[in-house]
């Protein structure tokens, strides 16, 4: 039986990967074309403020160095084949390999996102459960109102409010700057890092609960109105025990899946939060690359964010595959 399951997961993973691969290639190609057609001159972006001192010959040399003098398709294939070997090119603004910048910043963003993800998942789930159990009471109405309002709240504005209250008024946290000015990156302590993590993480979690909470609420209301909960009540089960035995299982699975499938929004939120709090993560790098025309970095980040979303979706699918007996054991018969 185990073997059958593994084989099915194998096939499933293979199919998923093929689909993802086609999407990823398309994303690479489209982003590449888009960026190549941008009116922003990559050479100017590279040289930055020194533009005035650069003569036409030097421009040509730079263009040649970056391969910018070749036809677009050739450039794409050069870039693509380098990509396959893990070489994402060199960032124009940081003058360092893109892969290096991304991996360094990914760690920062990952810590931020995973914290927010866990917090919002747990709190959102609990809120949804309470709301559904107390359906139509003031608690439920309040939670619903809160969630709908949060869903309409601009993340960056919430971040600004956090800054105003906790950094400016209360002075608990530094205003901006991921690393204290004047301190070398190596000397940054864990405490410093955590200090800079708290506000953006809270901002992201506060915004993130809405989706899980509303979804869990609806799902649990459906479950509580289901025939099998009715029958459980008919057999004398009630209250928390009933929820534990019949509600939780049937609600947690979709909630966890939803949370994994929400990686895309999480990343978007992180972009904004990082910008507000000057947190040195992927999001901030994306904005900077976009603003300053750092083509290799921007391309790398687009691919990285797509991979991130893919992995989230893949885990979501896998969880269903492994945990839901209807799918897991259904395949074996």
């Amino acid at each position: 039986m185990r073997k059958g399951l593994n084989r099915h997961i194998g096939i499933f993973l293979l199919l998923k990967s093929v689909r993802m691969a086609t999407l990823l290639v398309a994303i690479c190609f489209i982003s590449f074309l888009l960026i190549k057609n941008s009116p922003i001159d990559p050479i100017q972006a590279y040289i930055g403020a020194d533009l005035l001192k650069v003569g036409p010959e030097q421009r040509e040399k730079i263009a040649e160095y970056w391969g910018l003098d070749q036809p677009v398709m050739v450039q794409f294939f050069n870039w693509g084949s380098a990509l396959l070997t893990g070489d994402l090119g060199t960032s124009m603004i940081y003058r360092r390999p893109v892969a290096e910048i991304i991996s360094e910043r990914f760690l920062n963003s990952f810590v931020l996102m995973i914290t927010a993800w866990l917090l919002s998942g747990i709190i959102g789930f609990a809120m949804g459960v309470i709301s559904a159990m107390k359906k139509d009471t003031w608690v439920d109405k309040f939670i619903k109102w809160y969630c709908y309002t949060l869903a309409s709240t601009p993340t960056f504005w919430l971040g600004l409010l956090m800054l105003i209250v906790f950094a400016v008024w209360l002075g608990w946290f530094p205003i901006g700057l991921g690393v204290p000015a004047g301190v070398l990156a190596e000397d940054v302590t864990i405490a410093d890092r955590i200090n800079h993590l708290i506000l953006p993480a809270i901002t992201l979690s506060v915004v993130g609960v809405a989706n899980v909470a509303l979804h869990t609420r609806q799902k649990l209301i459906d479950v509580l109105a289901s025939d099998y909960v009715l029958f459980a009540r008919a057999r004398g089960e009630y209250g928390f025990g009933l929820f534990w035995r019949h509600g939780l299982r049937n609600v947690a699975l979709p909630a966890i899946t939803l949370q994994f499938a929400a990686f895309s929004e999480l990343f978007g939120g992180a972009v904004l939060a990082e910008q507000v709090f000057s947190y040195p993560g992927l999001g901030q790098a994306t904005v900077e690359a976009g603003l300053r025309g750092d083509v290799p970095l921007l391309l790398g980040l687009v691919i990285c964010s797509a991979l991130f979303v893919f992995i989230g979706n893949l885990i979501a699918d896998l969880i269903y595959y492994v945990l839901d007996p209807r799918i897991r054991e259904g395949r074996m018969i």
């Binding site: 994303i27 960026i35 009116p39 922003i40 929004e265 978007g268 972009v271 994306t286 025309g293 893919f310």
Partner: peptide, 24 residues
């Protein structure tokens, strides 16, 4: 449906940045 997947597989905000960048 593939196209929909394509648009859903990059975070909205990143797509927006990319397009904004392209169009200057």
């Amino acid at each position: 449906s593939w196209l929909i997947d394509l648009f859903l597989s990059v975070p909205h905000l990143v797509t927006l940045i990319l397009i904004a960048f392209t169009l200057g």
